[in-house]
Amino acid sequence: MIIMEDQDFDRLLKVCRIRLAEKEREAIKKDIDEVIAYFDTLESIDCSKYEPAYQPIEIPSRKRPDKIEAFKHAGKLLENSKIYRFFIVGPKV
């Protein structure tokens, strides 16, 4: 069973920023084909009259007041990163 062509799978991995060794690639490709075939079992159901449920319950829209608050943990948050002054150091963009 081949659902996804090799070139489409490689493109998907590139979009995901996931690199796989050849052996792992083969195993995961096979699993993904099987899982997609399993997802395809939804095809026979007609649920077009139902609106998509993005949440399982209705959650009233709630806004926070538009005011600046001091975040007491700001300094400590940076301890998890390499920092330069108050900037997190990251790779080149």
Partner: peptide
């Protein structure tokens, strides 16, 4: 992301696909 386990890699790939 190479440090994700196999199931995490599988789910990220499938989630991106759908």
């Amino acid at each position: 992301r190479s440090s994700f386990g196999p199931e995490a890699k599988r789910r990220v790939a499938l989630g991106t696909f759908v």
